[in-house]
């Protein structure tokens, strides 16, 4: 099975993002860029799938300079091929723009891959904007079956069974191929690269295409961000650290009663 995963490069989500006081926009320039966590879960799930059932995994990203090193890292942890799409026109837009561009890019990826994709995966959401729309919109753009928050995929003849995680348990969906799924966190973590894979990946050349190369026409955009603000800060309160635990607890009780929370 041929699997295509679209990956977004995001600021390291372990670092708090604040506004640049001069520009009034999120200041992510100094934050390391990493592959979106849910996209790495998608890659691990796909890598396990092809290890068990055969096939290849391609990762593709729209992104600025530097995105190629993220893609190289992904080659070290299960991706066979990687394509980068880089164009000034790709830097503007909303979720509709991204999904529309990705839908157009599938064709270019298939031409490069030399085979059509049976399954297209996205992370369930990106950790920066956290809007969770792109996978769903991509499925609509391509008029393909869509299942979200998938944590397990099993083959079933010419169909796939996708296990979706829900609040109460799970739902199993059957879909034809190709399909678009978004991936939640399965019960395992993405693998770490071994040295050999790392070395090989470092040497990989990532084919890079502009909008014109990829034949991408102008994408629609509907949503405008009018302004950014920061929410009021929470002040750090009192920290108690007595020699004896009993004293720490006694002092804390006093404060909790004084503050009328107990």
């Amino acid at each position: 099975m041929e699997i295509l995963i679209f990956v977004k490069q995001v600021p390291d989500d372990g670092i708090e993002v604040h506004l640049d006081p001069a520009a009034g926009t999120p200041d992510t320039a100094k934050i390391d860029k990493i592959a979106n966590a849910f996209d790495t879960y998608a890659l691990e799930l796909a890598a396990r799938y092809v290890e068990a059932n055969g096939g290849n995994v391609t990762v593709a990203a729209i992104g600025p300079d530097g995105t190629d090193s993220m893609l190289k890292n992904l080659i070290a942890v299960g991706a066979k091929k990687a394509y980068l799409f880089k164009d000034p026109s790709f830097e503007q837009g909303d979720e509709a723009s991204t999904a529309n561009r990705l839908a157009q890019l599938v064709k270019k990826c298939e031409a490069e891959n030399g085979a059509p994709y049976d399954l297209i995966l996205c992370g369930k959401e990106s950790t920066d904007e956290i809007s969770g729309q792109v996978g769903a919109r991509l499925a609509e753009e391509l008029s393909l079956p869509f299942v979200s928050s998938v944590i397990e995929i099993t083959p079933d003849g010419d169909k796939l069974i996708a296990k979706q995680e829900t609040d109460e348990g799970y739902i199993k969906f059957e879909t034809a191929m190709p399909a678009v799924y978004t991936i939640a966190k399965p019960g395992y973590d993405p693998r770490y690269p071994n040295i050999k894979a790392k070395m090989a990946a470092r040497k990989a050349v990532i084919p890079t295409f502009s909008a014109a190369d990829a034949g991408v026409s102008e994408a629609p955009c509907y949503v405008e961000c009018v302004s950014y603000t920061e929410p009021p800060k929470r002040e750090a309160g009192l920290k108690i650290q007595e020699k004896e635990v009993a004293d720490t607890v006694a002092k804390a009780m006093e404060i909790l009663i004084k503050d009328k929370v107990l």
């Binding site: 600021p11 989500d13 708090e16 950790t127 956290i130 949503v223 009018v226 302004s227 929410p231």
Partner: peptide, 20 residues
């Protein structure tokens, strides 16, 4: 409609308009 939503895990608040 002017919408308010959090982004970046809530450290940034966005005001949005949908021109559709």
């Amino acid at each position: 409609i002017l919408y308010t939503r959090p982004a970046f895990g809530g450290t940034v608040i966005e005001k949005m308009k949908n021109h559709g």
